[in-house]
Design a protein around this nucleic acid. Structure first.
Length: 487
RNA sequence: GGUCUCGUGGCCGAGUGGCUAGGCAGUGGUCUGCAAAACCACGUACAGCGGUUCGAUUCCGCUCGAGACCUCCA
């Protein structure tokens, strides 16, 4: 099956063709580790995790690189020139690397809880200063950068004479130059739209490295250019990230690659949209974000309860990755109930008895859901199809539909592949472990006693057992041929 | 201000020039000792106004509204 993906560069869906089949290089912009991972971080992580899993399922050999930005970016406010990570470190009286380490671990923990696969390589910007300096040298040598007071700036205007700065973001650079030039007479930069490749460090700036030009630190956009091509070659297949990175971050990456090597490094640019809260972007700068920990613990004023990582995942997958997704407590509650319905069906599926013939067409699930996923990761359609089959599985369980042994086998494998392998939903409470451990055996025992009480029409006893279990958080579901239960 | 995106039923959210999205919530029913779950049925949509078309929620134009980027941001 062909995979199509929406390429931001061409603004349309394209059939995905790897440069070096069967190898695929995937690079995704990771977090800047100076704060707790929040709901916004979950979106690209989950989106590109699905892509990673899907590519592997399509039998590609995928190298997935996601960076950790631990050098920090320049502040834009009064603390101009000071590194974000350095600033936080000074306030907390900690080493910058201590901060970076702490939040890297927290990020990893959250990503693991969301059941996203770890990238093949997770390079740190601080570990690639040399590569970044080499890249700057190349750009300087090709004449697309200049030194100014120990700092190196990218000469956008000069670059634009030969190439097209703005091709990714659709920005008209001539307008930007003419409208902003006059304001920046005093600046080190020749032009306000020039961006830093290397910044000379102020004395108080504690994250610093030597370079041919000054003691300083690399510019904002350099690390991704340097690390992506180091590990994936040039050109490589897919570069992903949040839509808010299109300009300037990714636009600058293109310019850097072209200025250094005369050609673009990336074939397909993919961007996930933002999560909004009350219709507004959820973000660090707006102070309206919810951390993943707060979500998992229900510890936030907008939340009435805690939500499991898988609930968050389903919530995100129910929207297409290129649409904004509006967060609300109500929407999460809906996702939670849907998830439990989905998992209940997954459990039921293990108990269905085959019949002589099938009244259902099991191929439909795979065809519709897999086709949807291969169509620019249309997870909402895939999930809609899966939920159609949740209903069918329930009907099969009640004997309202029938299925042959062979079809049942196909259905189990298809359902599990889609839900668990590709969408990466994980149910820690799934039957196997639950029903073999002590708690599971005790539940069997208790519920058999209740069944006996029911058979004797001793409803007082059976209701007491059910009510007491409910107080412990266990829901009992009576069935024709016995019982089921879930926590 | 410039560039761009979007406006779908109570909420979230797909999709399409004519054929049920889906989840959650609601209503009626079946099942059940009762309940839960499940299944069946039902209802409320495509911001507004024009245009193209046999036919538009879907294409085009305008109006209104919301948002994103232009500054670190997933």
């Amino acid at each position: 099956m062909n995979l199509t993906i929406y390429n931001t560069l061409t603004r349309k869906k394209e059939v995905f063709k790897p440069i070096n089949e069967p190898n695929v290089g995937l690079y995704v912009c990771g977090p800047t580790v100076y704060g707790d991972p929040h709901l916004g971080h979950a979106r690209p992580a989950i989106t590109f995790d699905i892509l990673f899993r899907l590519l592997k399922h399509l039998d590609y050999k995928v190298r997935y690189v996601r960076n950790v930005t631990d050098v920090g970016h320049l502040e834009s406010d009064a603390d101009e020139g000071e590194d974000k990570i350095a600033k936080k470190a000074r306030l907390d009286q900690l080493e910058p690397m201590e901060i970076a380490q702490r939040y890297t671990i927290r990020y990893h923990d959250a990503m693991k809880m969301l059941n996203t696969l770890p990238p093949s390589i997770e390079p740190r910007a601080s570990g690639h200063i040399i590569e970044q300096i080499e890249l700057i040298k190349k750009i300087l040598k090709n004449g697309f950068a200049y030194e100014s007071n120990g700092s190196i700036y990218f000469d956008v205007e000069k670059y634009h004479e030969k190439y097209n700065y703005g091709k990714l973001s659709g920005r008209v650079i001539e307008d930007m130059i003419s409208s902003t030039r006059k304001l920046d007479g005093q600046d080190e930069k020749r032009n306000s739209i020039d961006f830093a490749l290397w910044k000379k460090a102020n004395p108080e700036h504690i994250m610093r490295w030597p370079s041919p030009w000054s003691i300083g630190f690399p510019g904002w956009h350099l690390e991704c250019s340097a690390m992506s091509t180091k590990y994936l070659g040039e050109p490589f297949d897919i570069h992903g990230g949040g839509m808010d990175l299109v300009f300037p971050h990714h636009e600058c990456e293109i310019a850097q690659s072209v200025a250094a090597n005369g050609k673009e490094a990336v074939r397909y640019w993919m961007h996930n949209n933002m999560i909004t809260i009350n219709g507004q972007k959820m973000g660090k700068s707006l102070g309206n974000f919810i951390t993943l920990e707060e979500l998992f613990e229900g510890n936030h004023k907008m939340l009435t309860q805690a939500y499991s990582p898988m609930t968050i995942k389903l919530f995100i997958l129910q929207a297409h990755y290129r649409s904004t997704l509006d967060f609300s407590n109500e929407a999460l509650q809906a996702a939670e109930k849907g998830l439990s319905r989905l998992f209940a069906a997954a459990r039921l599926l293990t108990k269905i008895k085959p019949s002589a013939n099938s009244t259902v067409n099991v191929n439909e699930l795979w065809e519709k859901a897999y086709t949807a996923l291969c169509d620019d990761l249309n997870s909402p359609i895939a999930l809609a199809t899966i939920f159609d089959w949740v209903r069918i599985i329930n009907s099969l369980s009640e004997g309202k539909e029938t299925i042959t042994q062979a079809d049942l086998k196909t259905l189990k494998s298809t359902f599990n592949t889609l839900v668990f392998d590709i969408l990466g939903l994980a149910n820690e409470q799934l039957a196997d472990t639950k029903h073999t451990n002590l708690a599971g055996n005790l539940m069997e025992m208790i519920l058999n006693i209740r069944l006996q009480a029911k058979a004797n029409k001793d409803f007082a006893t059976s209701d007491k057992i059910r009510d007491d279990l409910a107080k412990l958080g266990v829901t009992v579901k009576d069935r024709k041929d016995g019982f089921d239960w879930e926590i």
